[in-house]
Design a protein around this nucleic acid. Structure first.
Lengths: 338, 338
DNA sequence: TTCCTGACCTAGAACGTTCTAGTCCAAAGG
DNA sequence: CCTTTGGACTAGAACGTTCTAGGTCAGGAA
């Protein structure tokens, strides 16, 4: 049986010892060369490296992290369905790498609970866990925080032991309201996020800003998905005095709102203005150029990593609040008869 | 210094040896208990387990996988920006778990190349790699396949050593064309995928199906994103004889097409029908109920896992072609004057 | 008594790295 | 001549598991 076709050496990948044997040196020396640390002459360095390349040596990250006192691993949970989480994860990769850390990512989805995702990270022995938009209760957070340092992104922490990085939702929604009012709108409605993380702050921000401008604080129940936005808007268009502007809980919700309007041939922004929240890819996507409140993903990711490392270094847990900003694109404009 | 607040035992998580010491037994016995394998009495089993729980013991997956001959780990690369990949990953988790395997996921994004993602998986020593919608060249695939068994999902493999699971794109687009023609359309256009994986097959499927129905095989250049779809549609609406139906490369592209139409106050499906491809969450999302060609994510994921394990068991690489099916929702209907 | 059997448990060697504590040897300093 | 220095290299012990090859002990058979 002439087996071993070029494929599938999976079971028998070369190890440090294999390379060492081939080069006639100790494994320790090969390790030194592969890690690029001082302790080997240039000549051997080059020789060993070429032999390793030729054999197709790839270091075993598992063994390495097991041996090292610190795993230099940041665990991240994210929601597969949230476009904004995708943006965050991408930037977390680069931010972590900049500090010499690896990322272990663990997905949350309808069929995979946040709890399961966190457990997987714990088993990977990450030094710190970063939870994107966590929906865990305070008690669950507290319990988890006893097992691993915890940092929340895009969610406020009510728990002492947990750090967090999020933008100021009250202020963000305020910016949206300011923008709409400055365009001349007086009949604004907020399609809220229901029980989603952050929904309370955004609702509060809306009510506060409305008060500032002396307009009625009109809030209707919504939710974090397109469906929620569409449903809420469907209920609004038939009201006796429909709103001239909608502040949606987030971009997905806003997308739903836009769709409901479009399907009723109500023009945006001529008849109704709509503004989202997140500046996720949805905002610059299908509904072409949605106005929204931007949470800078790159900045958040950078703050998350430095915050996480600070926690590791023994720093006290703390809260980083970023300033969101308005991105006025093409779904907002003056009200009909202004 | 009274240190050690309840948080951050990260550096000093209890090990098997700690639990063993506390219980007054050997580490081997604790291992037996934690793995739930025969070799311990019910009494000790319960005692050890309760002690472990109390100490907050969590096994170190790294050490375990290092020791085990097979890592029982499936590596997966996916694109953070593709909603359909999210669906696939979710189902891969459950499919892998059903076979006693773990998943190591590694993201691809604009700032993180597929190559980097695959390297990370190799370092994790996964036994097999599953690449979702890979954009690697045949040469790159061949090279990677010499280091780890490879299975492509949602992409055809032209390379001998690589397995693949994908739906029949030619047939799928054919279904879309059949559907539209049966509704009465005769002026169909295909907004293609440019150089994206699978674009060739879908284009070919469109031309073939058009031929079957004796309608003109009209194809315009598009791409895989909303932007591409919107741009292509913008060019079409002003043509002397605009299409009555659009077959888009995928759902994102279709979303762009829809948006371009909506912005010009062209009603869907009254004036123009639009059909996507993928049945990703976009299809049931903002543009409420897009007609599309469904690639069953759960089925694909299941086939991917069994295909990957087959490869591991020494099976020959092979191609699994799934049958897509039509999901007629509300963006397709009869043409204007039919 | 003596031997077997099987249930329960343990010692110690892996796995592939990194790290600590060296050894060895040539060149420089006395 | 002997010592010191420091650069190049190595032996061997970790890291936290799992696995192999036992060991011990009670109870039943002879």
């Amino acid at each position: 049986m002439t087996d071993a076709p070029a494929r599938r050496p999976a079971a028998s990948r070369p190890t440090l010892a294999d390379v060492a044997r081939a080069a006639g040196v100790s494994t320790a020396l090969v390790s030194i060369v592969m890690r690029d640390v001082p302790g080997a002459s240039d000549a051997t360095r080059e020789r060993v490296r070429s032999i390793a390349d030729e054999m197709g040596y790839v270091r075993d990250e598992r063994a390495r992290k097991l041996r090292q006192s610190s795993s230099r691993l940041i665990g991240v949970t994210f929601d597969l369905q949230q476009a904004f989480h995708g943006d965050l994860v991408e930037h977390l990769y680069t931010a972590a790498a900049a500090h010499g850390y690896d990322l272990a990512i663990s997905a949350v989805a309808p069929s995979r609970s946040e709890d399961v995702a966190v457990q997987a990270l714990l088993r990977e022995r990450c030094e710190v866990a970063v939870l994107l938009g966590s929906a865990l209760s305070d008690d669950e957070l507290r319990a988890t925080a006893t097992r691993v340092p915890l940092l929340l992104v895009a969610r406020r922490s009510e728990v002492d032991d947990v750090s967090s990085v999020h933008s100021d939702d009250v202020e963000g929604v305020g910016l949206a309201v300011d923008h709409l009012v400055s365009l001349g709108h007086r009949r604004l409605v907020h399609v809220d996020g229901g029980t989603a993380p952050g929904a309370d702050d955004r609702r509060r921000g809306f009510v506060l800003a409305a008060g500032r401008h002396d307009v009625e604080p009109w809030v209707v129940p919504g939710g974090p998905t397109e469906h929620d936005g569409a449903r809420a808007m469907a209920g609004l268009v038939d009201s006796p005095a429909p709103p001239t502007a909608v502040v949606a809980f987030n971009d997905r919700c806003a997308a739903g709102v836009l769709d409901a309007l479009v399907r009723r041939r109500i023009d945006v922004p001529t008849d109704v203005s709509v503004i989202g929240y997140d500046d996720s890819r949805l905002a610059v996507g299908p509904h072409a150029q949605m106005s929204t409140i931007s949470q800078n993903a790159a900045e958040m990711a950078e703050c998350a990593v430095t915050g996480a490392l600070d926690l590791l270094a023994g720093g006290e847990p703390h809260e980083v609040v970023l300033t969101p900003h308005l991105v006025a694109r093409s779904t907002t404009g003056p009200p009909p008869q202004a």
